[in-house]
C-alpha cells in the first residue's frame, strides 16, 4: 500500500466533497446554461467556508503529519 502523508490522508474526505461539489454544482450549473444557477452559489457558502477552513487548519498544523 502506498504511504500517504497524514495531512493528505486527513484532507481526503474534504477534497472528495469539494470535488463532488465542483462537478455536480458548479460545472453542471455552467453546462445548464442558466446563469441563475451560478448566482445562487452563496446558499452553499456555509459548507464551502467550513470545508476551506478545515483544509487550512489541517495544513497549518506543525509537522509533516506523515
Amino acid at each position: 500500500m502506498p504511504k500517504m502523508s497524514g495531512k493528505l490522508l486527513e484532507s481526503l474526505p474534504i477534497l472528495a466533497f469539494l470535488g463532488y461539489g465542483l462537478f455536480f454544482c458548479l460545472i453542471c450549473a455552467v453546462i445548464s446554461g442558466d446563469a441563475r444557477l451560478l448566482r445562487i452559489w452563496f446558499v452553499s457558502s456555509p459548507v464551502l467556508v467550513a470545508a476551506l477552513l478545515s483544509l487550512i487548519k489541517i495544513y497549518r498544523r506543525p509537522g509533516t503529519g506523515a
Binding site: F24, A29, V43, S44, P46, V47
Partner: peptide
Amino acid sequence: SFDLWFDPVQVS
C-alpha cells in the same frame, strides 16, 4: 446548505 445549491442545479 450544500443541497440548497445542489438540488436546483440537478433538477434544472
